[in-house]
């Protein structure tokens, strides 16, 4: 384990409860800055729940509670004085289903920027172009920026969502199975994008696709039944896992 890397997200004995049911059991993990960290595991193992607790999206569900610490940049995000809105501007999120707002492509990108301030039109134009270029979408949509974003293809929509998340300039990008609804070509584009983005952002990726985790991530965590079974460099996990369940899952013996 490369301990010299700066740690962006650090959890200590983090547990999560949906009212009575405990979904996460004492997760302890260090997520390194400017690295892609992938979480794999069978459905219902808690990896998405863990991802969504990083930016407190689980607050939207009634009757949830947490114990333990979820520390981002030295601050426990579940502290009382943490403003969840500010937190979420610093931790962007891309969802499994691409969900463009029913607005134009341009407005989709500028939405997050215009929430609290009014940048000039020229600034906005620059940011929109920059974000769309980052998301490798500019060439495809530059002629129809003011058309509805809903008319884009699935892969384009997902890249638009990434561009939208990048536009507010977060430090961390959480991706919840961003490619699960896409075809291989779109998936390839997004994976390329993830690799390009990691020099600027800390990326946490949840995926069902083990090849994807192997391709794009630097670190991989294996979740099972709400527990973090193993967490290590991706290469180590996929070549010589130290725990039997990980090996069984990776070799396709279950899951």
């Amino acid at each position: 384990m490369a301990k010299e890397l700066p740690v962006k997200i650090h959890t200590r004995d983090f547990s999560f409860f949906y009212s009575e049911k405990q979904a996460l059991h004492g997760i302890g993990i260090d997520i390194y800055e400017n690295r892609v960290t992938a979480f794999i595991g069978p459905s219902g193992c808690g990896k998405s729940t863990f991802l969504r607790s990083i930016n407190r999206m689980n607050d939207l569900i009634d009757g949830t509670r947490v114990t333990g610490d979820m520390i981002v940049d030295g601050v426990n995000v579940y502290d009382k004085d943490v403003d969840v809105v500010t937190l979420r501007t610093r931790i962007g999120m891309v969802f499994q289903k691409s969900i463009p707002f029913p607005k134009s492509i341009y407005e989709n990108i500028t939405y997050g920027l215009t929430l609290n301030e009014r940048p000039s039109k020229a600034d906005l134009d620059n940011i929109v172009e920059g974000c769309l270029r980052r998301a490798a979408l500019w060439d495809e949509v530059k002629d129809r920026l003011h058309h509805s974003a809903v008319g884009l293809s699935g892969g384009q929509q997902q890249r638009l969502c990434i561009a939208r998340a990048v536009a507010v300039n977060p430090e961390i990008l959480l991706m919840d199975e961003p490619c699960s609804a896409l075809d291989p070509i779109s998936t390839g584009k997004i994976e390329e994008l993830i690799t390009e983005l990691k020099d600027q952002y800390t990326i946490v990726l949840v995926t069902h696709n083990m090849q994807q985790a192997a391709r794009v991530s630097d670190y991989t965590g294996f979740f099972l039944m709400g527990r973090l079974i193993e967490f290590d460099r991706t290469r180590t996990i996929f070549t010589s896992p130290s725990i039997k369940e990980t090996e069984d899952y990776i070799t396709g013996r279950f899951g």
Binding site: M57, F95, P102, C161
Partner: peptide, 10 residues
């Protein structure tokens, strides 16, 4: 859609 908007910090 609501989650997507909230996740952008609105």
């Amino acid at each position: 859609l609501r989650e997507a908007s909230l996740a952008l910090g609105s």
